[in-house]
Each structure stands twice: as structure tokens, then as C-alpha cells.
């Protein structure tokens, strides 16, 4: 059976936790290994994770993929403690199993070498943004990544990604980079140098970025995280009103071009 599943578009499978460590105050990095090969996983796609050992939690919890290593058959998730579900995950021991439904949703449009890109990550929204840079194989001249967090301790290390992008930081308390929200960063003063903008993070952040992109008439994709039950398009709970009607964030998204959204 497992050998067949890899040929299907989507899978449900057991992964083994190979590492689970705190990156800072709020974020954990969980690396998971599959017994079988991985299907193609695009930046912005996500997995719906069964939360073990917690009888209060009935539904799975969705997480964007942070990193994928096809050779080692590992995927990693950036888990920010938001509630009971994410808290449970960060307490799991190395060697324990996690059941994933994957890969779900539609990811970001991968920029090509000629694109000049601004990618913005807020909170754990930084995960798919970093994966996007790595997958695109971009360069610091071509891709600028702005990351916002509450304070310096909430930022994760981007050392592995310096080859792919130029980084800009903001913190609300001014402890790292510019003080304020990420959208207050001077990089937003002149967007005309970019022809693509990507954003993943809190809704107010993405809406602010979408408004600026719309004004400057620049291609812009954002990644939504509406509440969902199934993650594969059958429950119709995670709908987002769009110019094409109510669409499922889990299958039509989570990445949407802002021209389709009613923002």
C-alpha cells in the first residue's frame, strides 16, 4: 500500500520526528522523516497534522512546509505556539510518530531569474517565504526578504538563506532592525523596483501589503490561513470570498493572487 500512495496526488502517512527544537521564544523547528519517498512539494503548500496524545483535539492542524529534503525524505515545519494543538506538537519526543496529510493546497508562483522580488514574512509566515527563496534559487540582488517579528528573540536564524536573498528585519520593540511593523520598513517606500511581491503572515500585515501592491500595480500573492477541517476541499469550511465566488483556501489556495481577493 505505501508504495502505491506515492503515486497519488495526495497522501496520508506516518513520519518519524528526527528533531524537535526551540528556535527562539515562540518558534519550534520540527523535522520529520518519511518511510517512503516524498512527492513534489512546492513553497506555500501545507500539511494537515494529526495531533497525538491530546484527547481535547479532534481535528488536524495545518502547517506550511518550511523545508523539504527529497534525498533524506524529510520535511520540516516551523511551529509557532498559538494554542493547544501547536503546544502539543512542540512537546513531542524525537523518534515519535506524526501522521500527515500532504501535500495540500497550491503554492506560490515560483519567480524566475528575471523577476525582482520582495517577499515578506511575519511570525511563522516566514517559513514558506524562506522555502520560496531556496526553491527559486534566487540571489540577494534579485530577492529581498523583509521579516517582521515582535522582538529580536522571535526572529529565527536565516544564515542558511543568505545566499538566496537580501534580508531586512523589523521588530515591534526595536530590538532588531527597524522599529515597527514590517510594513513600516523603508523598503516599502519605493516598490517600483519590484515586479513581484509575496507575503505570508498575520492578516493585517498581508492586507496592508496587498493594498500597497495594488496601488503600485505589482503582481502580488499572499498565503491565507482560514480555519479548516479537512484540508483537501471536501468540508467547505475554509472559504474565502473572491471575485470567482467562495473558494476553498485549502485547495484553491492557500496562496492567492490579490487580484482575485475582495480585499
Amino acid at each position: 500500500m505505501p508504495s502505491n500512495r506515492i503515486r497519488m496526488k495526495k497522501n496520508v502517512g506516518e513520519f518519524t520526528i528526527v528533531s524537535n527544537s526551540a528556535l527562539n521564544n515562540t518558534n519550534y523547528h520540527i523535522c520529520l522523516q518519511s518511510d517512503i519517498g516524498l512527492p513534489d512539494i512546492a513553497p506555500g503548500q501545507f500539511t494537515n497534522v494529526d495531533i497525538p496524545n491530546n484527547k481535547d483535539i479532534f481535528l488536524r492542524r495545518p502547517f506550511s512546509f518550511f523545508d523539504v529534503d527529497y534525498e533524506k525524505k524529510t520535511v520540516s515545519l516551523l511551529v509557532k505556539i498559538l494554542g493547544r494543538g501547536s503546544k502539543s506538537l512542540t512537546e513531542l519526543k524525537v523518534g515519535s510518530k506524526l501522521n500527515l496529510v500532504y501535500p495540500l493546497g497550491r503554492g506560490f508562483t515560483i519567480p524566475d531569474k528575471n523577476d525582482k522580488v520582495l517577499a515578506v514574512g511575519g511570525g511563522s509566515g516566514v517559513a514558506p517565504i524562506l522555502q520560496l527563496a531556496k526553491t527559486a534559487g534566487s540571489s540577494p540582488g534579485q530577492m529581498h526578504i523583509a521579516i517582521g517579528a515582535r522582538s529580536a528573540e522571535d526572529h529565527i536564524s536565516i544564515a542558511d538563506y543568505l545566499q538566496f536573498a537580501q534580508f531586512y528585519f523589523t521588530t515591534e520593540d526595536g530590538s532588531l532592525g527597524e522599529k515597527g511593523f514590517v510594513t513600516d520598513h523603508p523598503i516599502f517606500h519605493d516598490l517600483t523596483q519590484y515586479n513581484r511581491i509575496y507575503a505570508c503572515g498575520p492578516l493585517p500585515m498581508m492586507k496592508a501589503i496587498a493594498a500597497r501592491a495594488k496601488e503600485a500595480e505589482i503582481f502580488c500573492e499572499v498565503s491565507l490561513e482560514n480555519l479548516m477541517a479537512c484540508g483537501f476541499g471536501v468540508c467547505l469550511c475554509c472559504i474565502e470570498p473572491t471575485v470567482k465566488g467562495n473558494l476553498c483556501v485549502c485547495t484553491d489556495g492557500p496562496v492567492f493572487n490579490i487580484k482575485d481577493l475582495k480585499w
Binding site: D56, F58, L59, L227, A229, C235, L236, P241, N246
Partner: peptide
Amino acid sequence: GNPYPRMAETASGMLNAVGLQ
């Protein structure tokens, strides 16, 4: 169908209010 939010997790189950979209 009905406006978002349409789903709430509850003890050993869930509520939905999809509204026949």
C-alpha cells in the same frame, strides 16, 4: 453558502455551518 467562519472544533467533534454551498 454561509459566511466565514463556518466551523468550530468541539469536544470529540465539530460544528459546521456551510449552508449547502
